[in-house]
């Protein structure tokens, strides 16, 4: 059964505010999500407590139409989840991507870069051993 992520937010006449647990959602995910709203909102980050980030999204419209703020809150929460996925895919594929780009732009192996078999073997070993990127652990319980 699909798990759910729960977000709480407050809403006033012109803004919505979330308090986000940094242990669950990294700062990079929070910045990444917030940044995508700079065309529609004024954004303010604050830290109400250790490991917590408050994100306030204030509509650029002085009197946002009914329902827009709740929709905005929904979009932000959704984007936050997407950002987490993006970062985790980026992290866990970093060495594969670096290999591909190096190979694409700097040509053939000069003997110093690992070949692809070594790289994949290394990745497997890492994943089985200490799993530094925690890619085997479902992200929500990985903290």
């Amino acid at each position: 059964m699909a798990e759910t992520a729960t977000f709480h937010y407050d809403v006033d006449a012109r803004s919505v505010g979330f308090v986000i647990d940094e242990e669950l959602y990294s700062l990079d995910a929070i910045y990444g999500a917030a940044y995508l709203f700079v065309d529609r909102c004024w954004l303010f980050l604050d830290r109400p407590a250790d490991k917590q980030v408050q994100v306030r999204l204030r509509s650029k419209e002085a009197e946002p139409a009914g329902g827009t703020l709740d929709a905005l809150a929904g979009e932000f929460a959704n984007e936050l989840l997407n950002q987490v996925l993006r970062l985790r895919i980026g992290d866990s594929t970093r060495s594969l991507r670096e290999y591909t780009l190096a190979r694409a732009f700097f040509g053939d192996d000069d003997g110093e870069r690992p070949n692809i078999d070594d790289l994949l073997a290394e990745l497997d070993a890492e994943e089985l051993a200490d799993d530094p990127l925690e890619i085997q652990v479902p992200w929500d319980t990985g903290s």
Partner: peptide, 9 residues
Amino acid sequence: MKTIELPRK
């Protein structure tokens, strides 16, 4: 306070 529940992939 309001609450949103979203499916988590």
